[in-house]
Nucleic acid binder design. Structure first.
Ligand code: MN
Ligand code: MN
Ligand code: MN
Ligand code: MN
Lengths: 220, 220
DNA sequence: AATTAATTTTAGACAAAGCTAAAAAATTGT
DNA sequence: ACAATTTTTTAGCTTTGTCTAAAATTAATT
């Protein structure tokens, strides 16, 4: 598989991730920052290799083989993102471009060892789940902290209130996007929540809890 | 710079590393596992970009600009090799193929942070020196332990005697290629040498000391 | 010095991945 | 239902890096 083929496969995967119908040529072209005619050429090639199902003018969808290829690239992409953030102190928003390159390195041993080195993470720094070697992964759901039961765990991926004041508050309390939190206790009385963070556990008010989104990965 | 251009530049660097004359087309072709005609084409392109000095039929040499490009790729290659061995537990001899890919990842930040993460190593797992950002490096020399004064430090890169018995002995004493050793003391009486290893210090007989090569990097 | 041999370059072709412009098919609006 | 619009495909061209076969140049041998 060439680098370009891999990026197309990944693009098709992401475009059909939710609306699982077939993907339009123009949509792929936009995603890949290229022209529709180039997409048609590539789609034909991928169809030859039976990585996609394709009929002229009918759009395209991944074959099972193609889906597994996509997931293996996504696995690599997300593992590298974890590496960049956890080990090299990259910040949350810098990692994507670099991972876009690293995901194409060809070595199964490398990815196995990287996975082990990182402690077999289940999610990447953006809260997206990391498929295992066989392409199996647990879909994550985005929820407000206030909606979660005790014991839930997830990666902080977004805010409702993006005012400067709120972001400042987060900073002061060492809460950052990409951090993993666990719900330790919920105070019935005022709806405040105790969560564990990297730097110990803290209690946050209901107001905060209704403004922070976590990406939840169901524990097996 | 494309991946292919980078590999050619590196090949030319290595071919002129010691005999610093100009490099023959056929030599490059052999190194790059390609045909001489392809080399001519590429050399013309590199010459256009003034990365090499080239006159028809006269061979090729790196320009100063080309030399710096070569060293920056070599820096990346060797840093990744250190990463693979030190952090991912690859063995000495598995890393080259993977580093051959990783060296082409484009991100200055990545290499800076990787360098820091690894503790600014001076040599790679094969004892070869790692150039700094400006392409400066201290050339290493391969010497027998028995030829070194107290205080010397280097990476174990080879053996004289490769008998099974000797290799078994090394294994038992936790001496492996790629390990860094320091000469602590030399016993005049019998020529035995005390060296520090990862797992403490050990004394080795003169016989062993005349069979183990270290790659020495002069300390600044 | 002349011939032979080896090396290097050129000419022409090919596969990958992209582009533009034009044609074909599908969709939409009336 | 049919014209207009949008989407998709085709045809033909470009660039990068490779190849083979032939020509040009340099090196080696007699
Ligand atoms: Mn990519
Ligand atoms: Mn991500
Ligand atoms: Mn390489
Ligand atoms: Mn090396």
């Amino acid at each position: 598989m060439t680098l370009s083929e891999e990026d197309y496969i990944k693009a098709i995967y992401h475009l059909s991730e939710f609306n699982s119908t077939s993907v339009a040529t123009n949509a792929i072209a936009e995603q890949m920052q290229t022209k529709p005619s180039s997409v048609t050429d590539m789609v034909k090639k991928l169809s030859e290799k039976s990585l996609v199902n394709y009929k002229k003018y009918q759009g395209v969808s991944l074959s099972e083989k193609g889906r597994l290829v996509a997931l293996s690239i996504i696995r690599k992409h997300r593992l590298w993102e974890v590496f960049l953030v956890d080990k090299l102190n990259f910040s949350w928003d810098e990692v994507h471009v670099v991972a876009e390159q690293l995901e194409h390195i060809k070595s199964d041993t490398l990815i196995d060892k990287l996975d082990a080195h990182l402690g077999y993470p289940k999610v990447d720094p953006h809260g997206d789940p990391i498929p295992n070697k066989d392409g199996v992964f647990t879909k994550s759901i985005k929820k407000l902290i206030s909606e979660l039961p005790v014991g839930s765990q997830g990666v902080c991926v977004g805010v409702n209130d993006s005012s400067a004041a709120f972001l400042k508050f987060l900073d002061k309390n060492k809460i950052a996007l990409g951090d993993t939190f666990k719900i330790l206790e919920i105070e019935e009385f005022d709806g405040s929540v105790t969560i564990s963070t990297r730097s110990g556990s803290i209690r946050i008010s209901k107001q905060i809890a209704t403004n922070l989104y976590l990406d939840i990965v169901d524990e097996e």
